[in-house]
Amino acid sequence: MKRVIASLAIGMLIGSATVAAAAPNTVQATIAKFKILVDGETKTGTTNQLVYNGTTYVPIREVADLFGYNTNYDGPKKTIEFASANETVAEWISLANFAALNEAQVGQPEDSDDIITIARSGIRLFGINKTGFTDGTESKVLTEDGKTIRVLKLKDSFMLNKEDLKAAGFKI
């Protein structure tokens, strides 16, 4: 009888170890819906985001679309390609990328929903008045030292002309 109980216990131990080894890796994440801002503009996402260990995960195809890019996925090669949805994008840089490259901050004054200010170390570089902009329209702004920068509204994002930025002494 002792032998039967011992063999049964060993069999159960091996069986439970096999089941534990066969269990898939799982994670616990929270589904959330965040407000997405691109160049100070609120974007409407079509999917929920996941939050796992303090990091938010957003579907890459949706983010690419928000920034004006098409995505191509090649499963066998395990590659994701981003291609500009608009040929003119090569001449332009997004306001967010410009700010990151130039260590600048993008914000809105508390008293105006129509103005976007770009500043570095608390010093205003230039501002963009959003009034009258529609998708595909272009306008000009002046930097604080009088340089002209062309601004394009593309897919609800503000894009800055790279040539103008370079002429004004900014990094691109």
Rank of each mutant, 00 (worst) to 15 (best):
I5R: 03
I5M: 06
A6D: 06
S7V: 15
A9C: 11
I10W: 09
G11A: 14
M12N: 04
M12F: 07
L13F: 09
I14F: 10
I14L: 12
S16T: 14
T18R: 07
A20P: 02
A20R: 02
A20Y: 03
N25K: 05
N25V: 04
T26C: 02
V27P: 04
Q28I: 11
Q28W: 04
A29M: 14
T30K: 05
T30L: 07
T30C: 02
I31C: 05
K35E: 13
K35A: 10
I36H: 06
L37C: 02
D39F: 02
D39M: 04
T42F: 09
T42L: 11
G45N: 03
T46K: 15
T47V: 07
G54Y: 06
G54R: 07
R61Y: 06
E62T: 09
D65E: 14
L66G: 02
G68P: 04
N72K: 12
Y73C: 04
P76C: 10
I80V: 15
E81I: 13
A83F: 11
E87A: 15
E87M: 09
V89G: 01
E91G: 01
W92L: 08
I93L: 08
L95D: 01
A99E: 01
A99F: 00
L101A: 10
N102F: 03
E103L: 08
A104D: 03
A104T: 05
Q105W: 00
V106S: 00
G107N: 06
G107I: 07
S112P: 04
D113L: 14
D114V: 15
I118K: 00
I118D: 02
A119K: 13
R120D: 08
I123D: 15
R124Y: 08
G127A: 08
I128Y: 00
N129D: 14
T131R: 12
F133T: 03
T134S: 11
D135N: 15
T137L: 06
K140V: 14
L142E: 12
L142P: 03
L142I: 06
I149M: 11
K153L: 14
D156K: 09
S157Q: 10
L160G: 01
N161V: 05
N161G: 00
D164E: 05
L165S: 01
A167Q: 13
K171S: 15
K171Y: 08
I172K: 01
